[in-house]
């Protein structure tokens, strides 16, 4: 892998069943360019939880993914309600998701904690009433490179 790759996805907020499409696409691309399995899984989980969050809370948004020789940077942006208390939102089990979301297998307050757990760096830029931007970085393992 020599040149940086930039991929851009629109996450449709009206269709819960479609959430995860971008994550699956990223997983396929990372696999094609020879990235190691652990890194692929970590990126896929971060993207997937991000996509689900955007659908549940923000009526969709955009996901931009940048891949270079160091790792993968994911920028997830929405124009949703924003997060009033980020510290509280980072606690496992805390959720403001509506009742029905749990029936779908999500909304249990694990999204942001999972993203934090599987990324090397996570930055949340949010403003109530305006939206949220979550930047996640997953680095390739040292020594082994990206396996490409």
């Amino acid at each position: 892998m020599s040149a940086a790759i930039h991929l851009s996805y629109k996450v449709d907020g009206s269709d819960f069943t479609g959430a995860g499409t971008a994550s699956a696409a990223i997983k396929r691309i990372l696999r094609e360019i020879g990235v190691d399995m652990d890194t692929i899984r970590r990126c896929a989980i971060c993207m997937y939880e991000g996509e689900i969050n955007m659908v549940i809370h923000a009526n969709g948004g955009t996901a931009d993914v940048y891949i270079d020789t160091e790792g993968v940077k994911m920028v997830l942006k929405d124009n949703g309600p924003g997060i009033a208390d980020v510290e509280q939102a980072m606690q496992e089990g805390f959720s403001t998701a509506k009742e029905g979301v749990r029936d779908l297998g999500f909304g249990a307050g694990m999204g942001l904690p999972n993203m934090k757990k599987y990324s090397d760096e996570m930055l949340i830029d949010t403003e109530v009433g305006k939206g949220t931007k979550v930047t996640l970085i997953v680095r390739f393992p040292k020594g082994g490179g990206d396996g490409a």
């Binding site: 959430a19 899984r41 989980i45 997937y48 939880e49 297998g105």
Partner: peptide
């Protein structure tokens, strides 16, 4: 979300949940 949080290498998932996100979770994990 629990599957995403705790499963490391468990190739069989038993579930009572039936929606497309189960398949996507499986593929990603």
């Amino acid at each position: 979300s629990d599957v995403l949080a705790f499963v490391t290498d468990q190739p069989v998932l038993l579930t009572g949940l039936v929606n497309p996100q189960v398949i996507r979770t499986a593929f990603l994990m």
